[in-house]
Design a protein around this nucleic acid. Structure first.
Length: 278
DNA sequence: CCCACGACCTGCTGGC
DNA sequence: TGCCAGCAGGTCGTGG
């Protein structure tokens, strides 16, 4: 479930095991994920100490003592399993990469669809990574606000759904949280993105409302992802989303009696309430 | 440049 | 019950 909140939960699970520790061994159990592993990938990572485990948008950035950075993306179906010493289990289908730490802990990357990616970038190459370099602001940063969002959407003829899904506009949202944020902001996914920048009457009120909704949705999801780690109950909670995957059911906004609709935009499902979203 | 669309992969679901 | 089409939360390349 890898949008920003889920990737951040993964980062938090990796950090205590990796940061400050030495990666003793890297096992590649197949030659590629989305792309082939580069030559000497495993040997360039093995032996390195992990300086930091960071996140940018949906990317995980593991900075190594050599100066190289391991840039990882979970794609649609990627996940990490952490096992401390004595806790190892048999490997599963689609376990593609195993990192063994000097502590004895193992970190296993599993990815059935193989849309995930791992790259190793030198200090010089990291800033040249085209996708990373063009990533928009982190939604929870101060610099991301209504004005920034309005600027990024200005003159965009595409839909709000497509604009918010564009990682260059804001980093880390995916199909689910885009639907959730637009519902919270009471904006129709099909509405033209540029229209939020030209708020006639109440200048930019719409953009501010949308930026605030994005922050709220991401914050709540981060809290939910944290709770999921400790509390098993909330993991199965089917009520985590207020519109996503709720086609045909009642809108959950207080006082709204709309029925959630599902449409397809640029090939992906969009869920919205036709009554309270304008 | 901007935008929509299909491709990349496997697994699960729901309808027949 | 069994089978198969359709769908899945992301990104990238292409072509208009």
């Amino acid at each position: 479930m890898p949008e920003l909140p889920e990737v951040e939960a993964v980062r938090r699970s990796l950090q205590p095991v990796m940061e400050g520790g030495r990666i003793e061994r890297v096992v590649l159990r197949r030659p590629d994920l989305r792309a082939p592993f580069p030559r000497r990938f495993a040997s360039r990572v093995a032996g390195q100490t992990v300086r930091t485990v960071n996140r940018r948008g949906k990317y995980l950035l593991v900075e190594l003592s050599s100066g190289d950075t391991l840039v990882m993306h979970l794609g649609m179906s990627g996940s990490f399993r952490v096992a401390i010493v004595g806790d190892e289990r048999d490997s599963l289908v689609h376990d593609h990469v195993v990192f063994r730490m000097a502590s004895g802990a193992t970190i296993t990357f599993n990815d059935p669809r193989r849309f995930g990616s791992m790259q190793l970038l030198s200090r010089e190459d990291l800033p040249r990574h085209q996708t990373l370099a063009r990533l928009g602001p982190e939604p929870l940063d101060r610099e991301f606000d209504g004005a920034a969002l309005a600027r990024a959407c200005r003159r965009k003829k595409t839909s709000l759904k497509a604009a918010l899904s564009d990682q260059r506009v804001v980093a880390g949202l995916g199909n689910i949280y885009v639907c959730e944020a637009l519902h919270r902001a009471r904006l129709l996914p099909r509405r033209r993105a540029g229209s939020i920048a030209t708020g006639a009457g109440a200048p930019r009120e719409t953009a501010h409302r949308l930026a605030a909704a994005i922050k709220k949705v991401i914050n709540d999801a981060l809290a939910g992802a944290a709770a999921e780690q400790s509390d098993r109950e909330s993991a199965s909670g089917a009520t985590r989303f207020r519109v996503y995957d709720r086609e045909g059911r009642r809108c959950l906004r207080a006082g709204c009696r709309g029925i959630v609709r599902r449409i397809v935009q640029s090939g992906r499902a969009t869920f919205f309430c036709p009554v309270c979203q304008k």
